[in-house]
Simulated scan of single mutants.
Amino acid sequence: MKKMPTKTFFNLSKEKQSRLIAAAAEEFSRVSLNEASINNIIKKAEISRGSFYQYFEDKEDLYYYYLGLLKRDTQVMLLNSFKKADGDLFEGFKIFFPKILGLIMHKENSAFFKHLFLHMDYRTGTEVAPDTIKHCGSKKESKDRLREYINMEKLNLVEPEDFPILIKFMMSTLFGTVGEGFKEKKSQKEIISRFNKKLKWIEYGVKKDPSK
């Protein structure tokens, strides 16, 4: 179950909430989640350790709440991209990638996301994805909205579970490309070019047609 801040946190003044989130942003941008220090966060936020645990269960709770704040616009970005692509899955991802990469590599967010992508595990990979991606393949139709935006007739998929497998594979490719970009210190232009190349491989394959 996804954790959230307590009601006590939301009852704080906006100034106190902002101060704590700013302290978290600074610490999680300085080091990875595993290395982050609650002591540093509470010192910067000017709160006691006891107060911290009245607001959040642990540093992971705060971390994923902060991540949620940063990625809150990605859901709209994704669905609008597929709308613009008239339901073409690959063209939609091609439109979406520069948008999400711009958010990730924005100067105020890049240090945080660099640590996230260079230390990504299964949970962070799940949490950073737009909600529509996370619920793709869900048995609850209200949660799996992604199919509504994709022209399924253009895809050569056989089994019902093939679509969520494909989507998760493409998101894994997206995240992997971003991680490579951070590791190799590539520019946004270079990262986009590499992702588009991978998209082309997925869409058309890499094996040469012997008849040509």
Score class of each variant (00 low, 15 high):
V76L: 13
Q75C: 02
D131H: 10
P210C: 14
L67G: 01
C136N: 12
K84Y: 05
I100Y: 07
F112H: 09
E148S: 11
V76I: 11
K185C: 06
P5G: 00
R30S: 12
S37R: 15
I104N: 06
K83V: 15
A85E: 06
R194V: 05
T132V: 14
R194L: 13
N80E: 07
T177M: 04
L116D: 02
I100C: 02
D209G: 10
Y63M: 03
E203D: 08
F195T: 02
L12S: 08
V31F: 13
L103M: 08
K186W: 11
F117W: 04
K2L: 12
H119F: 12
D73Y: 09
L166D: 01
I192D: 06
L174T: 10
K185A: 08
L67S: 11
K71C: 15
P5M: 05
G179N: 06
S138P: 07
L199G: 01
P98I: 00
F56Y: 14
E27P: 09
L103F: 02
F93P: 00
K3R: 05
F96N: 01
S172G: 15
K134T: 11
R49D: 10
R72N: 08
K94I: 00
R30D: 07
M171I: 05
I202H: 03
K207H: 08
F82H: 02
D209H: 07
S211V: 08
D131R: 12
K207E: 15
K207P: 00
D88L: 00
D209L: 11
S138W: 07
S138F: 08
G125T: 05
K143C: 12
N40V: 00
I95N: 13
Q75P: 01
L146K: 14
S32W: 07
M77G: 02
Y55H: 14
Y66K: 08
E161C: 05
G179W: 04
T74S: 13
N11A: 04
P130Q: 08
K139W: 09
R19G: 06
K44F: 10
F93L: 15
M4L: 04
S81L: 09
R72E: 15
G68D: 05
K83P: 02
M77D: 06
D73M: 12
V206L: 10
Y64V: 11
A25R: 14
L69P: 02
F195K: 12
L67W: 01
R194A: 13
K14I: 06
E60F: 10
P164M: 03
N34R: 12
N34M: 08
Y64F: 15
I38Y: 04
N196T: 01
R19D: 05
I192Q: 04
M105S: 11
M77C: 01
F175I: 05
I38V: 15
L79Y: 08
A45K: 06
N40P: 03
F169R: 03
T6C: 01
F169M: 04
K200N: 13
S193V: 09
H119T: 14
Y55E: 09
